[in-house]
């Protein structure tokens, strides 16, 4: 998590055409945006593509950021839009392929990340998309309820409700024998 003031300053300098500020933003925010895509079902290769596309869109839309507004919801609203778009494209091409193949093959398992992202992915895999992104933004990125509400174009109440339901599901899942808790707490590989 980074100080919002710092990000706001970098964003203002980026809008003024400062390349070092743009580079600093890319270096600081790319890892968490990349993890956002990996956790939301994307393979590492897809996440690389989505990250590039997100920065391209951020660059095109950089004038829509207003000084004084929270920075992270602005970035995540765009990243989320790219992710939703990617998901729709993927679903559409998959449904076309399914129509072409009489016996559709099972989709290949996504490349699994070594270490914490894979553990986290396994932990959150049981959650619906909307709950997964809320938990990720709240707990991994460290955004406030208000910021998550802004990023997801919803109300604070709706975010609270999604987080609550997600926690209930995760508790239920971890309470079962052979739960995810052990794998998620396993020593990291890298």
């Amino acid at each position: 998590m980074y100080a919002d003031r710092d990000l706001e300053t970098l964003m203002a300098r980026y809008q003024q055409g400062d390349f070092s500020a743009a580079t600093a933003l890319i270096q600081r925010l790319s890892p968490q945006l990349h993890r956002f895509f990996v956790i939301q079902f994307a393979s590492r290769g897809d996440a690389d593509d989505l990250l590039q596309e997100t920065w391209l869109r951020i660059h095109q839309a950089r004038h829509t950021y207003r000084a004084g507004e929270p920075v992270l919801p602005w970035f995540y609203a765009i990243a989320r839009h790219i992710r939703v778009d990617h998901y729709r494209k993927a679903s559409r091409s998959k449904s076309k392929e399914d129509r072409l193949d009489e016996l559709p093959e099972l989709p290949a398992a996504p490349e699994k990340e070594a270490g914490s992202t894979a553990d986290l992915e396994a932990l959150l895999a049981t959650l619906p998309q909307s709950q997964r992104e809320v938990v990720e933004m709240l707990k991994i990125v460290g955004m406030s309820l208000e910021e998550v509400a802004r990023a997801t174009s919803s109300s604070v109440g709706s975010v609270k409700q999604k987080a609550h339901r997600a926690y209930e599901k995760l508790r239920d899942r971890m309470g079962r024998p052979g739960s995810l808790a052990r794998s998620a707490k396993a020593p990291r590989n890298g």
């Binding site: 580079t23 890319i26 890892p31 590039q52 992202t117 938990v135 460290g142």
Partner: peptide, 29 residues
């Protein structure tokens, strides 16, 4: 311990290919 797991995962680094970041910076620049 859900929080514990999530906090642990949040603290772990998630490196991104430096070449990818350079390429993004170049195209924006």
């Amino acid at each position: 311990n859900i929080d514990e797991i999530l906090n642990h995962a949040a603290a772990a680094p998630h490196p991104v290919n430096p070449a990818l970041l350079d390429s993004i910076a170049r195209s924006i620049g």
